[in-house]
Simulated scan of single mutants.
Amino acid sequence: MTFVVTENCIKCKFTDCVEVCPVDCFYEGENMLVIHPDECIDCGVCVPECPADAIFSDAEPQATAHWLEVNRKYADLWPNLTGKKPPLPNADAENGRQGKANELSPLPASEDVA
Rank of each mutant, 00 (worst) to 15 (best):
A109T: 00
C12D: 06
Y74F: 15
M1D: 11
E111R: 11
E69T: 10
P22K: 11
F26L: 09
P87H: 05
T82G: 13
P51G: 13
W78I: 06
L104W: 05
D112A: 13
N90Y: 07
V47N: 03
V5C: 00
S105Y: 05
N71F: 01
D24H: 06
G99S: 03
D92L: 13
A114E: 11
R72W: 02
L68P: 00
V45S: 12
C43V: 08
P79A: 12
E19H: 09
P79D: 05
D76W: 03
N102W: 01
A93H: 00
G99A: 02
A54N: 05
P86F: 12
W78N: 04
Q98D: 10
T2A: 15
G44D: 04
N8P: 02
N102F: 07
P86Y: 04
P79Y: 06
N31H: 07
V45W: 07
Y27L: 11
A65Y: 01
L104D: 03
S110T: 14
V45H: 09
A101G: 02
A75T: 05
A52E: 09
A75F: 01
V5E: 04
L33F: 00
A109W: 00
T82N: 12
N31I: 04
V18Y: 06
A54H: 07
A59D: 13
V113M: 06
E49D: 06
C50I: 10
V5T: 12
F14W: 13
G29H: 04
N90F: 11
A101V: 10
P22L: 14
K13P: 01
P89L: 12
H66R: 13
W78V: 01
A101Y: 02
D76R: 13
C21Y: 05
E103W: 07
A91D: 03
G29T: 12
L107G: 00
D24Q: 12
Q98M: 05
P51T: 11
E7P: 06
P106K: 11
K73G: 01
K11W: 09
Q98V: 13
E60C: 01
P61V: 09
E39L: 13
V4C: 05
T82R: 14
L81D: 01
P86W: 10
A54F: 07
E60N: 11
P79Q: 08
S110L: 15
A75Y: 00
D112G: 08
K85Q: 15
D58A: 12
E103K: 14
D76T: 12
E39F: 06
G99Y: 03
H36C: 13
A109G: 11
E7N: 05
